[in-house]
Structure formats: structure tokens, C-alpha cells
Design a protein around this nucleic acid. Structure first.
Length: 216
DNA sequence: GTTAAGATCTGCT
DNA sequence: GCAGATCTTAACG
């Protein structure tokens, strides 16, 4: 949809079409850097609700078909079912008995690729993030690391399958880093295909997760 | 039914 | 730098 048509239809930026999520999984992983992750937590809750937002500064691509570390590598299962859905859908899973991880589905329906969101730089709702993370982490680190993002943004399995183009969990337009500010390196914490350069970071950010040194 | 591994985080050495 | 926590998932018998 063209910007002009979007405007004519009264469609806001968060309701725009698929352009942010189309293309190869690697392209999407790179493109998501600088975009804004937004979480709307309903007001009227005991904690008062909040609008929490952060700038995405670290991503990893999990490729369709060829990538043994991609959850879709061995075909559909109950856990990975949402990975085979529409690009721009949230794929959330639970790991290590403690943590949730947020992914963005890529690739056409039925294929199975995703981008893991690994770190975000807090923009709004910092008090709300801190209520969930505690006093210990510095502001820059409130949403650094895939598990920490989900804690800070209150993302759990209930978010699995949500459309990230709109709604209470969404990715909205932000300022992309220049190519020279993007670092590329190996993915974190894998045993298979660990060396593949599919991790993308915004080198200017203080919020990228503590494995910064592994970026070349 | 059982088991082993896992896209992590924290705290301690 | 390393180990422990913690439990779901999926593979295997």
C-alpha cells in the first residue's frame, strides 16, 4: 500500500501492509533494526497499565529449510505451528524453564522462518519495565536479551500468534541505522550452525546483549 | 512413559 | 568464565 493510499484510507503507520516483513528472513532481520516494538498493557489493571516501547537493536535470523537451528527444521510440531503462518505474526516460545522468546514470522505461509528479537533500547514505559525487571538493571539493559525483553514487555505464550501489524503487541516504524552502523556476527547459544553470520546489531546502541564482543 | 537438550539469565569465583 | 536454576518440548522405546 502506498503512503498516499494509506493516508486516504485513514490507515495509521502501524496498520500498514507487509513491506516490513516480506523478503528473505535475513533481509527482515536486518530491516527490523531501528523499528519500534510497542506493547500496550490495558489501563485499569491493578498496576495501572502502560504503553511500553523500545527500539529494536539486535536480531537473529532463523532460516527456512536449511538451518538446523531453526525450530521449523524438522517440520511442523505443536510448538512451532505459528512459524508456518503469515509473515508479521508473533512466534513466542518458552525455553530453559524460565524464559520466553519473541520472534517475528518471516517467509510465505507454510515455509517456516523467523527472526528472533534479542534486544531493545527502552523508549517509553520505563517505569513499567522496571516494575517487572526490578531495580538492579540499568535502564539501557532493561530489555537486553531475548528473555529480558519478554519480561520487560510482558510477553508470554498468550502473545503467540498475534499479528504484529496492529494491536496490543506491534512493531511500528522507527529510524533504521545506516549500513555502517550494523554489525553482523554469529548467533548466540547454538550448537548447530553456530558460525553462520545471522546476528545483526545496531553498533551505536548500549542495549545490545552482553555478547557484543563476538560481533566482528 | 521416560529422557535429554535447550535461540537464557543471574550470581558467584 | 562457569555452573545452577527450572520445565517444556520432542524424540525415543
Amino acid at each position: 500500500m502506498t503512503p498516499r493510499l494509506s493516508h486516504a484510507l485513514g490507515v495509521t503507520r502501524q496498520h500498514r501492509g507487509d513491506e516490513l516483513f516480506t523478503g528473505s528472513t535475513e533481509e527482515v532481520a536486518r530491516r527490523l533494526l531501528g523499528q519500534t516494538l510497542v506493547r500496550r498493557i490495558p489501563y485499569g489493571r491493578p498496576d495501572g497499565g502502560a504503553r511500553v516501547a523500545g527500539r529494536i537493536v539486535e536480531t537473529e535470523a532463523y532460516l527456512p529449510l536449511v538451518d538446523p537451528s531453526c525450530h521449523a527444521y524438522r517440520g511442523p510440531t505443536k510448538r512451532n505451528a505459528t512459524m508456518y503462518g503469515r509473515p508479521g505474526t508473533a512466534y513466542v516460545y518458552f525455553i530453559y524453564g524460565n524464559h520466553y522468546c519473541l520472534n517475528v514470522v518471516t517467509e510465505p505461509p507454510g515455509i517456516g522462518g523467523a527472526v528472533l528479537i534479542r534486544a531493545a533500547e527502552p523508549i517509553a514505559g520505563i517505569d513499567a519495565m522496571r516494575r517487572r525487571r526490578g531495580e538492579r538493571p540499568p535502564t539501557d539493559a532493561l530489555a537486553s536479551g531475548p528473555g529480558n525483553i519478554c519480561r520487560a514487555f510482558e510477553i508470554d505464550l498468550e502473545c503467540d500468534g498475534r499479528d504484529l501489524r496492529a494491536g496490543d503487541l506491534a512493531i511500528e516504524e522507527g529510524a533504521a541505522p545506516s549500513d555502517t552502523d550494523i554489525g553482523v556476527g554469529p548467533r548466540i547459544g547454538l550448537s548447530a550452525a553456530a558460525a553462520w553470520p545471522l546476528r545483526f546489531v545496531d553498533l551505536r546502541s548500549k542495549s545490545i546483549s552482553p555478547f557484543r564482543r563476538r560481533v566482528r
